[in-house]
């Protein structure tokens, strides 16, 4: 092998394995995006037709269903390796889950606060940081729009229509997953 052939082989192999790992990460985005869309739509419809905001308690079932489901999906790919980027993205979303769940508990049982604003901001931030790690501008911009746009809207709207912000966030999250999947084919 010549020096340039060797370097080309190294670059190609490194890129291929990076692609395989990041493609695997797209499943998480799609799963959580679809779940968020389904849950927010269901809560919106139940709240809208019954007039009771108590349906928001269903959000607690979101993680109770999501995490075991994610576990099943990733178990199927237990042979897939990980790298630093894949692990960092996993940690970001795990922390998003922990922050959201904790702040929701505090807001519901202790100090009332504008949960929609906080969680949509966290969601957008987590998505933008994932975009930075993946070096993907559409994901960074999507995250920014969801976070900042959602936070502003949550201060202007005070009805069940707020739940639809999460539907939009969920759709964008699933689209993020599809972008990652196609980018690293």
């Amino acid at each position: 092998m010549t020096a340039s052939e060797s370097l080309a082989l190294i670059t190609e192999t490194l890129n291929n394995s990076r692609r395989a790992i990041l493609r695997n990460n797209s499943k998480g985005f799609i799963l959580w995006g679809v779940l968020l869309t389904v849950f927010s739509l269901a809560i919106y419809l139940l709240w809208h037709y019954t007039g009771s905001p108590a349906w928001n308690f269903l959000w607690f079932a979101f993680s109770a269903i999501g995490y075991p489901l994610a576990n099943v999906i990733y178990k199927k790919d237990k042979n897939a390796p990980t790298n630093e980027i894949g692990k960092a993205i996993g940690y970001i979303w795990a922390l998003f889950g922990v922050f959201s769940l904790t702040i929701s508990m505090i807001a519901v049982f202790w100090v009332p606060m504008n949960l929609f604003l906080i969680i949509i901001l966290l969601l957008g931030l987590a998505e933008s940081i994932s975009g930075v790690l993946l070096k993907n501008w559409p994901i960074i911009i999507c995250g920014f729009l969801v976070g900042v746009g959602g936070a502003v809207t949550s201060c202007l709207l005070h009805t069940e229509a707020l739940t639809l912000l999460f539907t939009l966030g969920g759709i964008l999250l699933a689209i993020t997953g599809l972008i990652v999947k196609s980018q690293y084919k």
């Binding site: 082989l9 190294i10 192999t13 490194l14 394995s17 990076r18 390796p81 990980t82 790298n83 692990k87």
Partner: peptide, 14 residues
């Protein structure tokens, strides 16, 4: 070299 390149980019691989 290809094996080392794969392993250089991951924690571990099967």
């Amino acid at each position: 070299l290809a094996v080392m390149s794969v392993l250089a980019g991951v924690d571990s691989a099967d």
